[in-house]
Write a protein that binds this DNA or RNA. Structure first.
Length: 199
DNA sequence: CCAGTGATTCTCT
DNA sequence: GAGAATCACTGGC
């Protein structure tokens, strides 16, 4: 399929979670103030996945995971950080893609201030870091990402080179830990951890 | 490597 | 309801 551009195109891509998790590497995530950058690391969480927050059905925390694809699921992690997901899958399946790292491209000074960190490589290289950098918090839980304002998910400006995205196992989970459901831009210095090739 | 951190969820009354 | 375990993390040794 051609590069997605319309909101309808984006919803088609987001309808299949594992495909979307890989495809979204190279897409852009922008905050309301225009700060943000390129997604370089994602993780897929499907409805049959014991590691997914939705595995045991809807709860107060995870209810926005069951919204239509293209909405945000934001939750508090370890009582401290917020983590940001793009809801995916058809028909409110309870699937989502965790955005784990982005490559800063715009609004870098604003992100530095929100993070209290200068080094660019440390601004958005982790799920808790990038939400702090973009000012994402629980008020963004359940919002649409395909609109014109606020938090926006946008298709890539240029084609991602084939073969540049590789799958690895996910970070920080105990269940489903062997599944290759983390997708990284190979060799990117902005990953939360070194991705791809072993060693 | 490990401590901090507190919401969320599970289990048992 | 209460107590306990768990936890999609970060930062500092």
């Amino acid at each position: 399929m051609a590069a997605p551009s319309t909101a309808k195109d984006l919803r088609v891509v987001l309808g299949e979670t594992l495909f979307a998790a890989r495809a979204m590497v190279g897409w852009r995530l922008l905050a309301a103030d225009g700060s943000g950058g390129l997604i370089v690391e994602t993780e897929a969480y499907t409805e049959d996945d014991p590691a997914s927050h939705s595995f045991r059905g809807p709860t107060a925390r995870n209810r926005s995971m069951f919204l239509p694809a293209g909405h945000a699921y934001v939750y508090r992690s370890y009582g401290v950080h917020c983590c940001f997901n793009v809801v995916t899958g058809d028909g409110g399946a309870g699937e989502a893609v965790l955005i784990r790292a982005i490559e800063p491209r715009s609004g870098i000074e604003a992100m530095r201030e929100r993070r209290g960190v200068v080094e660019e490589r440390l601004l958005c290289s982790g799920p808790g870091r990038l939400t702090q950098a973009l000012g994402i918090d629980l008020s963004h839980d359940g919002v649409s990402l395909l609109g014109d304002g606020g938090l926006r998910l946008l298709p890539p400006e240029g084609a991602v080179q084939p073969g540049r995205v590789v799958a690895t196992t996910r970070i920080g989970i105990t269940k489903g830990a062997d599944l290759p459901r983390r997708f990284v831009l190979l060799g990117s210095p902005f990953l939360s951890r070194r991705g791809g090739a072993k060693g």
